[in-house]
């Protein structure tokens, strides 16, 4: 591979948009509007990096992951995986390339086919890359994968309903790894699990990405979880990225007012800290993507908003090195930051 290719990001999103048309009537449908679930997202993930994507419900993070997965087609922009634009490739060709990017879903109770044994589920996925493996070689591969995700291979002939939620998520992870993908998208992979099981799965994902050198986009609404596993965090609000930074920077020195509110809203499991810390409580609920406010999507809830915020959508701008944020008021909120153009 040439030096240039190494420099360019592994996965690069450019102004990705996913809009859902809102229609009325059947047979003779009229387009009456659009839900702009993802509205101009640009992101770059380096090889071997774990990028956390955090945001509240309805911010479009799941739609974005499904757009990258090509389960939904983007309405605009480009998604380049190793330099190749997936949005420009035909659906037929996409099917052949799917083995390179795999997804781990949120609900381990819904993401496994209840009529198939663990062996069948994983075997089917292995066959996507190795169509001719069979017999003992296949059993060996399946056991190796199960072992890797911490499941006893002797359980391979059991069915999903015979496993607990945490074990099912392990099966789902094994299935996602089976085609030997380069990119993993994990969409809220631990949200449906209990705290004690959650930590098991997080440790497993951290270990696997380290050992296999996987690149991962890790999506969650829980900043605590995202912070634990990610190298960098992107914060999403109403279809747009509002800030990117390292976990430490995001947690300790958030630039964007929304990130500040998000960090401040998280309840810490520490009573003394909870008693003393001052919370920045936002007014109201996140607006609906059906009917987004004009200008900065956050301005109706933002304590720092001024007239200019309602006029235009702020662009992501590097106020500090590698710390892009989308807020025009950052120089005033954080004196000393971002005065340079």
């Amino acid at each position: 591979m040439s030096d240039g290719a190494v420099r360019s990001p592994f996965l690069a999103l450019e102004d990705v948009k996913t809009h859902f048309p809102v229609t009325q009537g059947f047979l003779f449908r009229r387009r009456t509007g659009a839900v702009k679930a993802v509205d101009g997202v640009s992101l770059a993930i380096q090889r071997g990096e774990v990028l956390g994507l955090v945001g509240e419900s309805g911010c479009g993070k799941s739609t974005l992951s499904r757009t990258i997965m090509q389960l939904l087609r983007a309405s605009g922009g480009s998604i380049r995986l190793e330099g190749r634009d997936l949005c420009a490739v035909s659906m037929k060709q996409i099917r052949r390339e799917r083995i390179n990017f795999q997804m781990i879903f949120q609900d381990p109770y819904a993401s496994l086919n209840p009529r198939m044994t663990v062996y069948d589920t994983i075997k089917e996925a292995i066959r996507t890359r190795h169509p001719h493996v069979g017999g003992r070689a296949m059993i060996r591969r399946v056991s190796s994968l199960m072992d890797k995700v911490g499941l006893a291979p002797k359980l391979m002939r059991k069915y999903p309903h015979e496993f607990s939620g945490g074990q099912r998520q392990r099966i789902a992870i094994a299935r996602a790894l089976a085609p030997e993908p380069k990119l993993i998208l994990a969409d809220e992979p631990v949200s449906a699990l209990d705290v004690s099981i959650q930590s098991q799965i997080l440790n497993l994902l951290a270990k696997l990405t380290r050992e296999l050198g996987l690149t991962m986009l890790f999506i969650s609404h829980d900043l605590g979880v995202v912070k634990y596993i990610s190298h960098r965090i992107a914060v999403m609000y109403l279809g747009r990225i509002v800030e990117i930074g390292s976990p430490r920077e995001i947690m300790e020195k958030p630039l964007h007012p929304y990130t500040q509110a998000l960090v401040s809203a998280i309840p810490f499991p520490d009573p003394r800290l909870e008693r003393t810390r001052r919370r920045m409580v936002l007014e109201g609920d996140p607006p609906s993507p059906m009917d987004p406010p004009g200008g900065c999507p956050f301005h109706p809830r933002c304590p720092f908003a001024e007239a200019a915020c309602a006029r235009e959508v702020p662009a992501l701008k590097e106020y500090l090195p590698d710390r892009p944020a989308a807020c025009i008021r950052i120089p005033e909120i954080h004196p000393g930051i971002g005065s340079r153009e």
């Binding site: 052949r96 799917r98 819904a110």
Partner: peptide
């Protein structure tokens, strides 16, 4: 709508 069907699609099954 179930995720296992989405999973099957994303594995590139016909």
């Amino acid at each position: 709508q179930q995720e296992f069907i989405e999973a099957a699609v994303s594995l590139g099954y016909s």
